[in-house]
Design a protein around this nucleic acid. Structure first.
Lengths: 199, 199
DNA sequence: GTCTATACGCGGATAGAC
DNA sequence: GTCTATCCGCGTATAGAC
């Protein structure tokens, strides 16, 4: 290179070169797979690195911690947003039906992974934040009566109780029950918190 | 010992001599304290051993595993049995009030420790078993209508959802709310599963 | 900037000597 | 019954090679 030739080849975006970006996405893909497959505790950083074909130290180097990697790759919304659209009077049953749908095994795995990781502070805070944003914010204004935000928050907790029973505890009484009965019974119990006057 | 002298000295209980029994109870006491104080994950076997003044290896040697020690020392019933006595028509509110009572901080800690350890299979199974024994067995026969066992199981799940919200997620909307409102609102939602005809 | 190699300090659990 | 020494796996950190 001749003296004085300023390297003006400034493309700052590709500054994250192909190599670094490829490893990042490889780690993210592996994390998504293994967290869903084995849960938060079951998927070790070393296993994720092996699945991605990289060194374990790179996982921490790129994402800071296992917890941060989890938060970046897991979808805390569980894809529930669209269910909240539609008539308010039947949202209780629709919420329960969404999670009981046997055609959605991914939802079950995501929930289990999330619940397992909830004892980490950042994960817990993200869940609380997302609940407020996804459920309370859009739903509370549509309610009538007192304590609207509280009632939505309690309804979300109620839904969590059912998921707990189904996916974590695997309570035989509930898992063996007719899904239609659970949807109707529990859905109406949730509904009662949201629209108590309709019952 | 003379030949033929059948050893009829059968006091099988004192077979656990004083020394061994003392360490056992010391470990159990330390485990109860630390599990309540720091939760299942936060209380290491080494810390429990130190608190008891014994060698860490003894903890495993006596109880088999940390999980088994936890199961032996924690009370999975959370002392709820007595609440189920009394009129069926108000049991929903009584259950919620029991856990919200600020004078019972131990209950909160026990629940957190239990929930944290629930991803261990034996703990999970014990919780399911105890739910069936403590809640479903005494309550279901008192119900009327269809799906009595299922409705009790769902009500227990519902209660778990509230505890999750309060103690694990520490949702600010719920924790900041007036306890009386939560007791009335959520208690009635639970009640509806148990005695739907009364609402 | 990206990656490799290595290591630290923790966890639960075990084998075998006293 | 008890303790010493040890194992293996975990999340994480760092020094230094490319």
């Amino acid at each position: 290179m001749p003296y004085g030739c300023r390297v003006t080849n400034t493309s700052p975006a590709p500054r994250l070169r192909a190599a670094g970006l490829a490893t990042r996405t490889a780690i993210e893909d592996a994390a998504r797979t293994l967290f869903a497959e084995r849960g938060f505790d079951g998927a070790s950083v070393r296993a994720i690195a092996a699945e991605a074909g990289v060194d374990p130290a790179l996982v921490i180097r790129h994402f800071g911690s296992k917890e941060a990697l989890f938060l970046r790759t897991v979808d805390t919304s569980l894809g529930i947003g669209s269910v909240l659209d539609g008539p308010l009077e039947t949202v209780g049953r629709r919420l329960v039906a969404y999670f009981l749908d046997p055609g959605r095994p991914v939802i079950r795995k995501r929930y289990v992974a999330l619940a397992q990781a909830a004892h980490h502070d950042q994960v817990r805070e993200e869940m609380v934040r997302h609940t407020a944003e996804t459920y309370v914010a859009p739903l509370a204004p549509r309610l009538t009566g007192e304590h609207r935000e509280l009632r939505v928050a309690l309804a979300v907790g109620q839904l969590g109780g059912l998921l707990n029973l189904l996916f974590l505890q695997r309570d035989p009484i509930v898992t063996a029950a007719d899904p239609e009965v659970v949807i109707a019974t529990y859905g109406d119990a949730i509904q009662r918190l949201l629209t108590p006057e309709d019952t």
